[in-house]
Simulated assay, not measured.
Amino acid sequence: MWDEMGLVRVYTKPQGQQPDFGDPVVLSADRGGSSVEDFCNHIHRSLVKDVKYVLVWGTSARHYPQHCGLSHVLCDEDVVQIVKKKETDEGGRGRFKSHSDAPVRICDRQKKAPLKQ
Rank of each mutant, 00 (worst) to 15 (best):
Q110W: 09
I106A: 13
P24H: 00
Q110D: 10
T88Q: 14
W2D: 15
F39P: 11
P19Q: 11
Y11F: 15
F21I: 12
G16Y: 11
E87A: 05
F39H: 01
S28I: 07
I106F: 10
H42V: 01
G32L: 11
K84R: 15
D30P: 07
R9E: 08
K52F: 10
F21Q: 12
H67M: 04
G58M: 05
D30I: 06
N41Y: 11
H99I: 06
V56Q: 00
D76P: 07
R105V: 10
S100E: 05
K52T: 00
D3R: 13
P65F: 09
D78R: 11
H44T: 07
K49I: 06
A61F: 08
K13Q: 09
G92S: 04
H67D: 12
V26K: 09
R45L: 05
E37D: 11
H42E: 13
H99D: 06
E37F: 00
G69L: 03
Y11H: 09
P114V: 01
C40V: 07
Y64N: 14
K49P: 06
I43S: 01
Q15A: 02
L47H: 03
V10Q: 03
S34Y: 01
H67N: 14
L74P: 04
S71Y: 09
Q66N: 07
H99N: 14
R93P: 04
L47K: 08
H44G: 02
L47P: 00
G92C: 10
P114R: 13
K13C: 07
L27P: 08
D76R: 02
R45W: 07
K112F: 09
N41M: 08
M5S: 12
D3T: 08
D23W: 09
A113H: 03
H99P: 02
S28W: 10
D38T: 10
R109W: 11
G92Q: 03
W2N: 11
D76F: 02
L74R: 07
Q81D: 05
K97N: 03
S98F: 01
K84P: 07
G16D: 05
V83Q: 01
H63N: 12
P65H: 08
E77A: 10
C107L: 12
H63A: 13
G94W: 04
M5D: 15
C75N: 15
W2A: 09
V73N: 03
V10S: 04
V26T: 13
P24T: 02
D38P: 11
D50Q: 14
V51C: 08
D78G: 03
A29F: 08
H72I: 11
H44D: 10
V83Y: 08
R95P: 06
T59F: 01
F39W: 00
P14G: 00
I106G: 09
K112A: 14
W2V: 13
S28L: 05
S28D: 08
L55H: 05
